[in-house]
Design a protein around this nucleic acid. Sequence first.
DNA 1: CGATTGAATCGTACGCCGTACGAGTCATGC
DNA 2: GCATGACTCGTACGGCGTACGATTCAATCG
Lengths: 232, 232
Amino acid sequence: MAAKRSGAQSKRSQRKGLSLRSVQESRSEPPLSLERIVATAVELLDAQGVDGLTMRRLADRLGSGAMSLYWHVANKEEVYDLALDSVLEYRGPPQIAESRDWRGEVVHMLEDWRAIMLRHPWSALLLPRRALGPNILGRLELLSKTLAGAGVADADLNVAIWSLWNYVMGATVTRASFDLSDDDRAAAQQRLTRLSEHYPTIERSRLLLDNDWDGAFRKGLDFLLDGLAPMQ
Amino acid sequence: MAAKRSGAQSKRSQRKGLSLRSVQESRSEPPLSLERIVATAVELLDAQGVDGLTMRRLADRLGSGAMSLYWHVANKEEVYDLALDSVLEYRGPPQIAESRDWRGEVVHMLEDWRAIMLRHPWSALLLPRRALGPNILGRLELLSKTLAGAGVADADLNVAIWSLWNYVMGATVTRASFDLSDDDRAAAQQRLTRLSEHYPTIERSRLLLDNDWDGAFRKGLDFLLDGLAPMQ
DNA sequence: CGATTGAATCGTACGCCGTACGAGTCATGC
DNA sequence: GCATGACTCGTACGGCGTACGATTCAATCG
């Protein structure tokens, strides 16, 4: 059915875990490394979008042959996985004491999340098609812990988390898709105006045009949190 | 930047609009038509997923040469666009009188929407990357009209609509992505269990495992609608 | 009636993609 | 000095989207 993602392993990762150093010592940094590959992949994705990333281009940018990548990485899918997860690292909010303002913390976490994905629009399109990496799971865990700490019962936790996650994902994906099609902002506006000509209510509310996306995101989030609050 | 989608036109659609009949008359139905192409593309997408659709395969299934498709369609992107929009047709709820139970209507529309996209998981992955087709816009318009009819002020309409849309999109995309990676349900469970080992709260809530997706969707939706209600 | 047209089909070919395969390089430890 | 194993990469294969031009065939017109 879908893509198989199970058995794939880079030759590198098949080795147990020994002997990382040796080559490391040479003067000018080793031309290839997983870190450099992932970082360059992110650069490329930022610059060219999801379809702009090809193994050959990636290798070119790294000054190596395309096939050299496959020592460090099992296949292109793994590059996508690593690039996505690498961008989603999260160091919590200032982290003061114990469970102060849970609502503020949740809002902060979710806005940070959204901000990242809007900064890297490809990530919003990629995420639904990739496995959950450690950073994504880490964020989910943190969200769960915060809500649980705020008193949400275990039974309600799933509803709470999925509601928030879904909302953020939807807002991010939608927004990113609008950004994507804005090759030329003015032309896009025109196109949308022409499109919404026969949709009077959409037209009247200027739904597709000058939205205050950030404000709308916050308001919807507040509605959800209002609904969630009685659960604690 | 992103893909250009502007100038593309099938040779067919460049012709004004005359002379549709002629060939129609031959005995065994004409081997190719936009309708057949789109319908077959949907079949293929249902069966093989987003990446399973290729022009050659599509043509094979239609018993024609690959290049013949390009008479009816400008390029592969257009096939995606048409397939997506074709699946999203909507005939409203029983449509009784004027603005009865607006909340019930909204819930019905959104659950129908979600149901479709879960029935065709590829559509959830496609939608964020495609332009808004007439059926999608039609659904948005209907949603807007219902909310406006329920008394939501124009100023609040955008927030209301985007909140709901984002939530539905997120829920759909997330759910579809879980379905996607379930080549083998049992193996997937195992993998998720192993993954969540180091995420105690996720583990405790069994967030990734036996969720009542439908119920959770309804509850989150109710929270949103509760929040929206005061606007009317 | 034959000639012309234009709708529709399709074979071939090009440039790109991911990656299998195996040969090459080179530092290390015997 | 030789074997080993980490790492790099050239070549090649099959598949992709699609540009281009030849082909077929029914309708139209003189």
